[in-house]
Nucleic acid binder design. Sequence first.
DNA 1: ACTGTATGCTAAGTTTACCAAGCACACGCT
DNA 2: AGCGTGTGCTTGGTAAACTTAGCATACAGT
Lengths: 117, 117
Amino acid sequence: MSDRDDAVWKSLGEFIKAQRELANLSLRQLAELAKVSNPYLSQVERGLYKPSAEVLKNLANALHMSAETMYGQAGLLDEDSKGAAPHGVENAIKLDPALSQDQKETLIRIYRGFTER
Amino acid sequence: MSDRDDAVWKSLGEFIKAQRELANLSLRQLAELAKVSNPYLSQVERGLYKPSAEVLKNLANALHMSAETMYGQAGLLDEDSKGAAPHGVENAIKLDPALSQDQKETLIRIYRGFTER
DNA sequence: ACTGTATGCTAAGTTTACCAAGCACACGCT
DNA sequence: AGCGTGTGCTTGGTAAACTTAGCATACAGT
């Protein structure tokens, strides 16, 4: 059950702290901007807690950076993950509200038939 | 204060369920792939809980989609990342370097057949 | 009939993200 | 000397994410 991603989350805290100081913000100032309490932000910066995605998004906004960058630093953006990137077609199909589930299934099956060899 | 997110999270559960069924996975199968318990996944799909970013990432991996797409559907990407274009499917097909011209035409023809009445 | 197994759901519990209140130190003021 | 305000940190508590054990149905072998 134990995770060994400690280093990942610890460095996330250091990253946030670095960005905060780079923006010349105090703990409380950033906490208010990101709509979290200041003790909690302190604990996040020291790696005691893993902030939720919602908090990360607010922090990213407060620090004027994209949420993707934040998630990437948090280690939950799957660095190179297996074949997610080159499949823009599949994602577009899956997200299209004009298609029924059966139709999506059909299209994806055909698409995979084309791309697999 | 957080009521305005309800619709977002509710649809996230439906989205996950749709993707799961699209991949022909049972609740337990997807739960195992995403390293969560199956009752929890059931509750997530019905909108009772907001999955954490880590769970979201694992779910995205298990469903062969990018984590960004997942976060986008979950509504916790910056609001500047706007909603998917209604006809992103055709563009994605045209831009896919893995498809031949014939294959692109075939896919687009099928897609249009689906979306026309 | 009677298992065995697959499906999803419920109940009860543990863990943890997160907050409100307050502590301790440092730096200006008057 | 005080007083006020800024900094980050600690302490208790609550709510929600998440798990383990188990229920109920449905469908396949004997």
